[in-house]
């Protein structure tokens, strides 16, 4: 019970951060700020996965020898029965699988960020602004008399 109280805050804070970044993303009309919100939202999803992977008293999932000095120092801090039950060959490790997934997700995140910002740069070049409101006003103004029609040869 004490453990549950002492550790329940982790998920609560992560969820709050997840929602705060989603809020930034949904409210702002600025393209760059939207991308910042999106990138933070993805990061907080990563925090959630890594929180799942934590094993109390564990060490990084890089196999070490239980007989080595490091391994023994690790084990000394823990209840032998606990190590016996949850350790692998005498060492307790964190769960590697979520680490792998989030490594992938981080890279996906930076890829999305770069494409999104590249589009934002093109919006700025085409409209002279990166606020969605300004873009909407410009489109509304353009569609009144004549739609943005042929724009000459295709370019970049």
């Amino acid at each position: 019970m004490i453990d549950a109280l002492a550790t329940g805050y982790v998920y609560a804070i992560i969820v709050a951060m997840m929602m705060a970044s989603l809020f930034v993303l949904l409210t702002t009309g600025n393209l760059i700020r939207k991308m910042i919100g999106l990138s933070l939202f993805q990061t907080t999803a990563g925090l959630f996965y890594i929180a799942l992977s934590k094993v109390g008293g564990g060490t990084a999932p890089i196999i070490i020898d239980a007989e080595s000095a490091v391994g023994q120092a690790r084990a000394a801090r823990l209840d032998p029965a606990y190590v016996e039950h949850f350790g692998v060959d005498g060492v307790v490790y964190g769960n590697p699988l979520p680490h792998v997934l989030i490594l992938t997700a981080i890279v996906v995140g930076v890829a999305t960020l770069s494409v999104g910002l590249a589009i934002a740069v093109r919006v700025r070049e085409a409209y002279g602004d990166t606020e969605l409101d300004a873009v909407r006003r410009a489109d509304a103004a353009a569609s009144e008399p004549e739609p943005p029609g042929p724009r000459g040869r295709p370019n970049a």
Partner: peptide, 12 residues
């Protein structure tokens, strides 16, 4: 979800 840090959780 099982408590944070629980070695016996399904995930771990």
């Amino acid at each position: 979800i099982p408590g944070f840090g629980d070695p016996a959780s399904p995930a771990n």
